[in-house]
Design a protein around this nucleic acid. Structure first.
Lengths: 238, 238, 238, 238
DNA sequence: AATGAATGAGTATTCATTCAT
DNA sequence: AATGAATGAATACTCATTCAT
């Protein structure tokens, strides 16, 4: 049995990189610093990684992978179960629910999904901070943040609220709203969590629940009858 | 009359820095590149600025200064006029309106204020991108983004919606909501404007008006009777 | 057995620095030149030393260290032996000799000590030149030259000449004399050795023995009955 | 009549250079610093001097000039008067005195000469420090310190003490002694005056008179019958 | 797996000096 | 006499990366 309290060198390098990249960005982090922080020699870093950039790529990619996998896992679970139990079926790419009860169950699950996403974001906030930082630079990671838009786009939450009454399309308005008022706040919440906490002196759980309430307000406003965006989304485009 | 098409060296250095910093961040921008882009010698940059970081500081500070000044100018204008005309008065640090008409006039002005802020943000989106980028690093600019929170906190828009019926306090919930669902989206909208435009193929004005509609939805939801946050804000703290 | 003719990189850097610093001073010596002279890359210099100044510090400090250690070694040796053999004893911080013979033996040893110091100075004349040069600048090495005063102050040569007849104190006069007419000439002799040799066309040994004779004259004049300084030193302060 | 309290620009530049060069050496002194210290613009320095080195040359040369001129003036005065009054005459390059009284008068004058030299050195100690500093570097000023040797060599003081009994030559021993135990201490006394004062807490006049006493001891020992050097000097070389 | 030594190609910054006015 | 702007040529120092062991 391996001593798990003493992480092996590669993992220490990764953790050191996460810490430092999230604090100062990849550019400003020196390979020396990573080596010191990880307690290994500089040369060993190059034994495990081809370059400093490769560490960055590794971090970002593994975040996106697990984000995607978490999303997929969770959705598949809900989907599979509900479909298997006949509470929901897929028709022409859209979802149809057996009854109002099924809808509500699904909405509950959707909330859980959001919270799970939030927890994931918070757990990985250091890497999200890195991703955010790098996405603002013109390099290859620029687009990575936008990949997260897909997580929103593909989320069946919104597809499902239109059950019954006609086609549903993502309007440009809705996409923009989702990106700048859902993805961006979520990502920023994770990225700035520690900074915000410091100036607000809220506890972890206070921060978290406050954010959840905020999300609910925004989502409610989106779903509510009066929502201009949704009306538009549902009715305008044939 | 001076030939304004030929900016003087210092201004060319500043513009070149804005362009390059917003593209790659300050760290990754080489002083050589700034010199080339500005069409000056490297040494001249050091004639005007003590260091590369000082250019960054200059950009960020001048942005915050003009943001603050725009906010102040605008607010003072509205305030002064309404108070002078007797439509509004300050009582115990809060605003009181003469009548419903005055309230509506003020709300209209508030919308104008937001749009003006938005236009300012878009005009200065390169520097805002820089600020966003640098605020994610652990250095002195970290806190600069949070200074913008004040622009939200001090905004009388929200103070006024509580006219008549009791004291109004910023709850922690409200502050967090304002930061992550107003400031952050606004700043991010400016910072990611060009990137988002590229993947959405919307025109400048389409982007802008779409964002305005989104803001309205969020603010409406905040103001509406059903708003948990506002109820809390108004009623909870004596 | 290692090939000692091929010094390792660090030593080559040190030797190159000694050569160049003593020729032109630290300021005027380019790190490039050190690298070329030592046959290493510039970067390797920074692998071993944090900065050019650190090389200087290293040289100066190691000189002072070995000067001190030589002085200590030699004195300890003479002291120990004479005390062990009962020819001398320490009383109230002063030395007392068994007889006139012991005194003369000790004076002989003192001369040996001075010659040994001289040889050390000549061997290390390049570094002494550096030290002299840097001690004239306002930085940290300014005081290093004055540390050498201690070597003179602590030297038991002068303490012993007062054997028998009363307390001996260093007067301000004596201190000044020792500094400007013993330490300074010795240090300058080493520092200007090569320059002086060039204009005088004396051989190494001619220079050396000429200097030794000069020192003897000065010391004799100091010790002689007629010496104002010594009379003062011995009698004035109770 | 000109306001002499407000020195003109050129003089301020010179004074600033003296101050800074003597503190840090010419290499380490920035033209900027001179400009700041002198309260002029950098460009003006180049109006008056062709380069930084030229300022250094100017300082050193003007020191040597006035040193030489003071020496000449003083000696000429004594010489002229004594010769005119028939107390002394030049014979075959040597001096002959009329009587013992004349000798003693001359020796008194010689002491005055030394003190005058000392005062000159102290007044110009900043520039002497600069000269000392630069003489240790390999550049053109290296030899300047040795020019001072001539002041000693040419000084008729020692020539005269051999009145009567035979030819007098400078032996190599004597030259070396004079350089390392007269010139060097004098120059060093000026160069290190402030530094030594700081560690000794002597007053200006205490320092000065202590040094004068030291010089007397050394010179007496040189002149005394028992002096090995002088015997040698007088008798050895035919 | 691990490392001490070594390096090429930068990189920010400096600085003496010039020049147009 | 005086200067603000401008610059070429360094210059100290950095850093990601490699390599022999």
């Amino acid at each position: 049995m391996k001593d798990t309290s003493k992480l092996d060198a590669k993992e220490r390098i990764i953790n050191a990189s996460i810490k430092l990249f999230s604090q100062k960005g990849c550019d400003a982090t020196r390979v020396n610093e990573i080596a010191d922080e990880a307690g290994v020699t500089k040369a060993l870093i190059y034994y495990y990684f081809k370059s400093k950039e490769e560490i960055l790529d590794h971090l970002v990619q593994s975040l996106l992978d697990s984000a995607a996998s978490i999303a997929m896992d969770f959705l598949r679970e809900i989907f599979m179960q509900m479909i298997k139990e006949g509470q929901m079926k897929m028709e022409e790419g859209r979802l149809r629910f057996a009854n109002q009860e099924a809808v509500e169950y699904f909405l509950q699950s959707a909330h859980k999904y959001i919270e799970q996403l939030l927890d994931f974001a918070l757990e990985n906030r250091a890497i999200i901070r890195i991703l955010t930082l790098e996405s603002l630079k013109g390099d290859k990671h620029q687009s990575k943040l936008f990949q997260m838009l897909k997580l929103g786009e593909d989320a069946p939450i919104l597809k499902t609220i239109s059950q019954g009454e006609g086609e549903f399309y993502y309007t440009d308005d809705l996409k923009l709203f989702l990106f700048f008022f859902s993805i961006i706040p979520l990502v920023s919440f994770a990225a700035y969590f520690d900074d915000y906490q410091e100036i607000s002196s809220l506890s972890d759980s206070e921060m978290r629940s406050s954010f959840v309430r905020s999300v609910q307000i925004v989502l409610n406003s989106l779903i509510s009858e009066s929502s201009y965006l949704m009306h538009n989304a549902i009715k305008t485009r044939p």
